[in-house]
Simulated assay, not measured.
Amino acid sequence: MKTPILLHIPHSSLNIPKAVRDKLCISDAELERELLRMTDRYTDILFGLPTITSHSIIYPVSRLVVDPERFEDDAMELMAAIGMGVIYTATSQRTLLRIQPDACERTKLLDAYYHPHHRRFTEAVAELLNEAGQALIIDCHSFASRPLPYELNQGMDRPDICLGTDAFHTPKWLLDSVTKAFLKLGYSVAINHPFAGTIVPLPYYTQEARVLSIMIEINRKLYMHEDTGEKGPFIARVKDDIATVASQIVQT
């Protein structure tokens, strides 16, 4: 398989610009805790694939600023019902994060962060389609070992690896290949549990079968200390295992 890999890394940043920080209703200490809970810390490291030709789209600010993996229109976004649409007004603990921005502020935030990111993402997919005729998106995430209050799935049976799929953009061979590769390495794997779905730029969503996508979520207990945010002793091993899985996809 010669399909190039595009790594989408949306939630790794801890960066909150001062203008946004000033709008948040929580203390610095609580903000630090919220970033610890909500950031997919080190996913930019874990999904570095030095031996594989790949391209990365990394969101430069925290998801608490604007979440690039939410639908822009809150009417289309399930999480908007609990204050966690594209612009969060609630924390992971379902407490107040910020006052709902007015239309002007909302537009400024989307224009500053959401729209540029999605333009880069869409352009990257277009470039790969033009060059190779196909593009494989790996949507790169991590998740807490215990469910957070905001999560829709409160089940405690959390796997090592969660794979998210899309009925149109995740062919069976791709899901089978990734599942078998992680199982072979000794990880437990669940499909669309505790999180489901995978991202595709809207211009291509359900329109272009040459755009493939799969979400890979790593249980944070495998690679970091969840209570401090520090790297764990096995982060290098997990990184190497992800690279091994990606290599097998490329060879499928």
Rank of each mutant, 00 (worst) to 15 (best):
M1S: 15
K2F: 11
I5N: 07
I5Y: 15
L7W: 04
H8I: 07
H11P: 05
H11T: 02
H11R: 05
P17I: 05
A19D: 00
V20T: 00
R21N: 06
R21A: 13
L24D: 01
C25G: 10
D28F: 14
D28C: 03
A29Y: 13
A29G: 09
E30A: 12
E30N: 14
R37C: 14
M38P: 04
D40V: 01
D40I: 01
R41V: 03
T43Y: 04
L46N: 10
F47K: 01
L49H: 02
P50C: 14
T51R: 15
T51I: 10
H55W: 14
S56M: 14
I57P: 01
I58Y: 09
V61D: 05
V66P: 00
D67K: 02
D67A: 03
D73K: 04
D73H: 04
D74Y: 02
A75S: 08
A75M: 05
E77M: 06
M79T: 13
A81R: 12
G83R: 03
G85W: 03
I87Q: 01
Y88L: 06
T89E: 06
S92L: 11
S92E: 12
R94A: 08
R94Q: 15
R94C: 15
T95M: 08
R98N: 01
I99P: 13
D102H: 07
E105P: 08
E105S: 10
L110A: 06
L110H: 12
A112S: 08
Y113A: 00
Y113G: 00
Y113E: 03
Y114G: 04
H115S: 13
P116Y: 03
P116E: 03
P116M: 07
H118S: 07
F121P: 08
T122L: 05
V125N: 03
A126N: 15
A126Y: 11
E127M: 13
L129I: 06
E131T: 14
A135D: 02
L136K: 04
D139L: 09
S142H: 00
R146A: 14
R146C: 09
Y150H: 13
E151R: 14
N153T: 12
Q154P: 09
M156I: 12
L163N: 15
A167Q: 05
F168Q: 03
K172Q: 14
L174Y: 05
L175W: 02
L175M: 12
S177M: 14
S177Q: 12
V178P: 00
L183H: 14
K184T: 15
S188A: 10
V189K: 11
I191W: 00
N192R: 11
F195K: 10
T198A: 01
P201L: 02
L202H: 04
L202P: 07
Q207Y: 09
E208I: 11
E208C: 13
E208S: 04
A209R: 07
S213E: 00
E217C: 09
E217G: 09
N219T: 11
R220V: 08
K221E: 06
K221N: 12
L222D: 02
Y223G: 06
T228A: 04
G229R: 07
E230M: 08
K231M: 10
K231R: 10
G232W: 02
P233K: 05
P233S: 05
R237N: 08
V238P: 14
K239H: 15
K239W: 04
D240L: 12
D240I: 11
D241H: 15
T244M: 06
T244W: 06
T244V: 12
T244Q: 11
V250S: 09
Q251W: 11
